[in-house]
């Protein structure tokens, strides 16, 4: 059932990035995945035009975390009218960097034999959470103290019905690691860490109170502009 759930969640997060009417009949939908450290953009391309499409290529604009295609878009056969094809594009994080708004925005250019088309999409920031993002406990305590209070952001996650252990397990599957758990006055406090591909660490305190469906998440980071994206990621992981 874990596998089926994974497939389902992939299906749910598939989005239409380029509608056919904006790209002379080429429709692109897709999703981003991270599996065992490999980031991929999984796409479905459909030809809704009346002529054959060939010569596909893809390029990203510079972006906040240096995402770039790590190989060509592998569509080796012409795409006939009404035909769809799946393509998985491996991504690297060593491309050119430029801060985007929102931070996780990606501008993409796709070309075929007809024209060049552009679209924007947003990737979940958890795609950039590395597998070795569990901070040493001693380092966590020192870093938490060291990061100024002005760099702390607090958010509410409403309507969440997991207990703290279930939440912790779910978050670990997107490389958010629980380092310590304490219970104070009936409230579970989870101390967590994650590390982005560019080496930025994010420290978190997640408060879960039995019987209260509203969690409080506090995020501390030396680059606090990532906090909003990280919060959105907590919400989507915990609610899906």
């Amino acid at each position: 059932s874990g596998w089926i759930n994974k497939q389902l969640s992939d299906v749910i997060s598939v989005q239409v990035w380029l509608p056919a009417m904006k790209a002379k009949g080429l429709e692109i939908s897709g999703t981003f995945v991270r599996r065992a450290g490999v980031i991929q953009m999984e796409m479905n391309l459909t030809n809704k035009a009346m002529s054959v499409m060939t010569d596909f290529a893809i390029q990203f604009n510079r972006n906040s975390f240096g995402l770039a295609s790590a190989g060509p878009l592998q569509i080796l056969t012409p795409l006939s009218p009404n035909q769809s094809i799946e393509a998985a594009l491996p991504l690297s994080t060593v491309g050119p960097v430029m801060k985007m708004e929102p931070l996780n925005n990606l501008q993409v250019a796709v070309k075929n034999n007809i024209d060049v088309f552009y679209f924007s999409c947003q990737y979940p920031i958890s795609m950039l959470f590395v597998e070795d993002g569990k901070m040493e406990r001693q380092v966590f305590l020192a870093t938490w103290k060291d990061i100024p209070n002005d760099n702390e952001s607090q958010f509410q996650i409403k309507d969440c019905h997991l207990n703290s252990d279930a939440a912790s397990n779910k978050l670990q599957s997107s490389n958010i690691f629980t380092i310590a758990k304490r219970t104070v006055e009936g409230q579970d406090m989870l101390y967590q860490s994650m590390k982005l591909t560019n080496g930025i660490w994010v420290l978190a305190e997640l408060r879960v109170q039995a019987g209260n469906p509203n969690y409080t998440i506090s995020l501390k980071c030396r680059a606090p502009e990532v906090s909003q994206c990280v919060f959105q990621n907590y919400e989507s992981v915990l609610k899906n």
Partner: peptide, 20 residues
């Protein structure tokens, strides 16, 4: 001893965040 100290430090952190 270090581990005990860290356990204690996390307890103090959680306590101080609940009752600042």
């Amino acid at each position: 001893e270090l581990e005990d100290g860290l356990d204690e430090a996390f307890s103090r952190l959680a306590e101080s965040r609940t009752n600042p």
